[in-house]
Design a protein around this nucleic acid. Structure first.
Lengths: 216, 216
DNA sequence: ATCGCTCGGTGACTTTGGTTACAGACGCCG
DNA sequence: CGGCGTCTGTAACCAAAGTCACCGAGCGAT
């Protein structure tokens, strides 16, 4: 792995003692995988700490019936708290990570991760990502436990700008639901004049109206 | 606050430099609250880092309609990651903490918490609790998103020993559901010979059968 | 052009869970 | 004993979401 690339995306690495930085360069394995690759999965031991260089990882929880619930995305410069949690607690993964588009990542061996945690700078880096993700997970719990699908869909659309390019299936996946439900709800939104529908596209006409539905 | 009591429950505090230990003793406020007290709530700024001395705090997510979903409990010697997360990210609480039974807790001011984080021992303490709770939250997400109520109830009963003393209402609360559903499901279990019901009590007759339902 | 694929639309049905509204059982305490 | 509050049983009804089945529109490739 090119140490410059990694430090560019993860500034925290530049703050480490040279000896450690050298070991990171030497011991992390870089790989590039095509979109859709499962980079880790439930009940699997965590092999190391992943840095995302390019592309991104969708972390999701698979259900028995084949549906799945997206938890969060790991972008370049971020870290995967599930991996951190597994490495810290020596437990298996409890979710699945899938490359979204061609993705390059660097895998740091577990032992090196343990040593890095001794470094305050690195520890803070992981720490703060933990705390950010916690809030996201709480939000997610609230959504799946309490919010109705129309509220969630309205919220999702609002987070995607004025013109949303996505198939109904894609939107359904993001909510852990099914296409038919999304089609029905979108039709309802369209009848209320909130959106205009066309193939693989949803145009937001009335953001305020959607907002009312989202936080009803 | 008596520094010995606190260090006894939270051994990590004994590893801190004497100057900090003194400040903790001086600056933490101890209070005892009756059961049911809301010690923090959604959309409230986090005033400080809580140590539980006696009793315990149920952390839960309230829904609009009055129901609530239990997230986890904080026992003496543990910490509340929601509080940590809020303090780290300077964000508001996104859940509610309720004392379960009479509870004594010590509240450490936010600024002192920030300073303590500079101490490796304390940071590790918070760190590891983070990683443990993450796994619990993942489990919870899986439950509410994918498992049916009978599966969840079966699992809950299995985690409570052979003889469960609880009202149906209590069980419903633990699952974020309602009494009627629990009564119905328990009746079904009883008809299958899995449990025997009596007032405020559920006797497990066939753990294996319940297990089959739980992870169907 | 037409074959075939993906995408979207739609109606009928099922399952799950929750809601409403009672009624009966139990137990405690005056 | 009698009255009251808590706990449990249960039926009817409802809403949300998912499932099934099928159709038709649009689009791209041969």
């Amino acid at each position: 792995m090119n140490a410059q690339d990694l430090s560019g995306l993860y500034p925290v690495l530049a703050q480490l003692p040279p000896a450690l930085a050298a070991r990171i360069a030497a011991e992390t394995q870089t790989m590039t995988v095509p979109g859709g690759t499962v980079v880790f999965d439930e009940h699997q031991a965590c092999q190391g700490f992943p840095f995302v260089i390019k592309g991104d990882i969708r972390v999701l929880k698979p259900a028995a019936n084949g549906r799945e619930l997206p938890l969060y995305r790991v972008l370049p410069g971020e870290s995967c708290i599930i991996s951190s949690s597994c490495l810290l607690g020596h437990s298996d993964y409890n979710a699945r990570g899938v490359a979204e588009g061609e993705t390059t990542l660097a895998l740091m061996p577990r032992l090196l991760f343990d040593e890095l945690l001794a470094e305050p700078a690195f520890r803070d880096f992981v720490f703060h990502l933990f705390s950010e993700r916690i809030a996201e997970l709480m939000q997610l719990i609230e959504e799946v436990a309490f919010r109705k699908l129309d509220q969630r869909l309205a919220g999702l659309l609002l987070g995607k700008g004025k013109l949303v390019r996505a198939t109904h299936q894609h939107l359904a996946d993001e909510l852990g639901s099914v296409r038919e439900m999304i089609s029905r709800l979108l039709k309802g939104f369209a009848e209320q004049g909130l959106v205009r529908l066309s193939r693989e596209q949803v145009e937001i006409l009335d953001p305020a109206g959607l907002r009312r539905i989202a936080d009803a």
